[in-house]
């Protein structure tokens, strides 16, 4: 249970507090995950980020820069943002939850069935951390470091769509897939990410490379490649075989849909 709730006014204060309290303390954005029963924190000190001014959405040369405490509902309610990002934010079914869950918090929570992270991975989104520097969401996810202050959606994102299959609309996705296309130097770069097939959301770099090199012709080839790249486990949501099948089908559908749009 949280016994102490610290409310720093500056990033420096926040970092100092974390330095002081170490593993006993946790940064708290909105608490949507840290206070929720299935993911409740066992830390005793919360360092609140609410007074650090980590809200706001601006467009820069880099792309869209969203404060880490931007909620998913704020993303949805910002029509100027890329449609694929807004669609991914809407994958969380409950509006109450979308009003509380923050982008930064969701990346930091790094949950198996996180529904917005695959889109961020696929888009090559980056995070900025208070300790200095930027890194991709994927890099952060593999080696969490620092206090996320900002999420950056690259200006190169040209396309992003997400699909999921669920047993019930508010249940965890059996598999969730995002496909993004970045255009850099006139070249299309595919980003494919999935949730539900590993402990964390994953990106399929090998399949992306095959797509970029146009080595996968037709939906069946794409599905086969995806099937060889994911190694899900059986759980109450579905068998490993079914999840692999869904991964293949959903990626195939999204690529087919993108190609249809391009043509």
């Amino acid at each position: 249970m949280i016994r102490e709730f610290l409310q720093p006014e500056t990033l420096q204060e926040a970092l100092a507090m974390k330095e002081q309290h170490g593993d006993q303390a946790v940064y708290m954005a909105s608490g949507a995950r840290l206070n929720a029963a299935p993911t409740k924190t066992d830390k005793t000190i919360a360092i609140s980020l609410s007074r650090l001014g980590l809200q706001g959405i601006v467009q820069t040369d880099k792309g869209w820069e969203l404060g880490a405490l931007t909620t998913l509902q704020q993303v949805i309610d910002s029509p100027e943002l890329p449609e694929g990002l807004r669609e991914a934010a809407a994958l969380i079914f409950s509006r109450n939850m979308r009003n509380q869950i923050t982008l930064g918090g969701e990346i930091a929570a790094n949950l198996k069935a996180c529904q917005v992270v695959p889109a961020l991975l696929a888009m090559d989104a980056e995070v900025e951390v208070a300790e200095g520097g930027c890194m991709t969401v994927e890099a952060w996810q593999q080696k969490p470091y620092g206090l996320i202050t900002k999420v950056i959606i690259p200006a190169s994102v040209d396309y992003c769509r997400s699909e999921k299959v669920v047993k019930s609309c508010a249940g965890l996705p059996i598999v969730s897939v995002s496909l993004a296309v970045n255009v850099k130097d006139g070249k299309q770069q595919f980003g494919i990410a999935l949730a539900g097939v590993a402990e964390k959301a994953i990106r399929l770099h090998d399949v992306e490379a095959l797509l970029a090199d146009q080595e996968l012709q037709g939906r069946e080839a794409i599905e086969e490649a995806v099937g060889k790249s994911v190694f899900p486990e059986t759980d109450f949501l579905g068998s490993a075989e079914y999840k692999r099948h869904l991964s293949s089908v959903l990626v195939g559908l999204l690529v087919e849909e993108f190609n249809g749009r391009s043509n």
Binding site: I2, F5, Q7, M28, G31, A32, N35, A36, A37, A46, S48, S50, T71, Q73, R95, N96, M97, N99, Q100
Partner: peptide, 15 residues
């Protein structure tokens, strides 16, 4: 002004 679930908040957040 935003709807949320009270169970996902702790008292200190209300300050």
């Amino acid at each position: 002004g935003c709807s949320v679930n009270a169970s996902l908040l702790i008292a200190a957040q209300l300050d």
